[in-house]
């Protein structure tokens, strides 16, 4: 695995993503998703909302890194809050 140049933070990051996908699959098997309409301008499934949350998290972190030089913890907190809002009411 040396050629993949793993580091602990990136390993944890991908484990988290993998775990997220695994949990989503379990939830989907247990309670299949339906299209629902919240405050987002279109009807979404659970998977759509997860995808939007991840994309928003990436966007928030990139914006933070572009604007500030401090570590992006604020962006991480904002991303989690955004994800909760999107998943719960999106």
């Amino acid at each position: 695995m040396n050629w993949m140049a793993w580091t602990l933070p990136t390993a944890l990051f991908f484990c988290a993503i993998g775990l997220l996908l695994f949990t989503m699959t379990l939830i989907e098997l247990k309670r299949p998703t339906t299209m629902a309409r919240g405050w987002l301008p279109m009807a979404t499934t659970r998977g759509d909302r997860i995808f939007i949350s991840l994309l928003a998290a990436a966007g928030l972190h990139v914006a933070w890194l572009a604007l500030f030089t401090s570590p992006p913890y604020v962006a991480s907190v904002a991303a989690v809050i955004t994800a909760i809002i999107v998943l719960r009411w999106g």
């Binding site: 050629w3 993949m4 140049a5 793993w6 580091t7 933070p9 990136t10 990051f13 991908f14």
Partner: peptide, 19 residues
């Protein structure tokens, strides 16, 4: 995934990398 791994490291040569 490999690209993401490289993006957080300074790669001097194949065996020398810094986070």
């Amino acid at each position: 995934m490999t690209v993401v791994n490289f993006s957080v490291q300074d790669v001097l040569d194949v065996n020398t990398r810094f986070f």
